[in-house]
């Protein structure tokens, strides 16, 4: 499922909405999540999962081509933990 397929599905379920409104709704949701994470906030969506950021400390990496040591700055990476309900749904045998 891609973003446009998601938008089309929602548009079919909501025939009273314009496609462009559905597009705005979907992008607003993911923009909000992105903004929250970039502020360092956590996004918790019960039943679905939680997004947070994890800090990776500075380290000395290596250029895999030349073998040369390079300093890698501290950085943050987004992290997603699956919610309980979704985790259970993934594992129910159908």
């Amino acid at each position: 499922m891609t973003k446009s397929e998601l938008i089309n599905t929602l548009a079919e379920q909501n025939p009273h909405l314009y496609l462009r409104d559905v597009e705005r709704i979907v992008s607003t949701i993911f923009d909000e999540i992105t903004e929250a994470l970039s502020r360092g906030d956590r996004v918790e969506l019960r039943g679905f999962g939680a997004f947070s950021i994890k800090r990776r400390g500075p380290r000395t990496g290596r250029n895999p081509r030349t073998g040369e040591a390079v300093h890698v700055e501290e950085k943050c990476v987004p992290y997603f933990k699956t919610g309980k309900e979704l985790r259970e749904r993934l594992n129910t045998t159908s």
């Binding site: 998601l6 929602l10 607003t28 949701i29 923009d31 918790e44 969506l45």
Partner: peptide, 30 residues
């Protein structure tokens, strides 16, 4: 911590649907 309520509020502000309908759409996406 950001929750569904914040996402609903953002959709409400951005698109101008009712709060109830905004909440339903957030839920539908998930």
């Amino acid at each position: 911590t950001i929750t569904r309520a914040h996402l609903t509020e953002a959709v409400y502000q951005e698109v101008g649907l009712s709060r109830n309908e905004s909440a339903d759409l957030v839920e539908s996406v998930l």
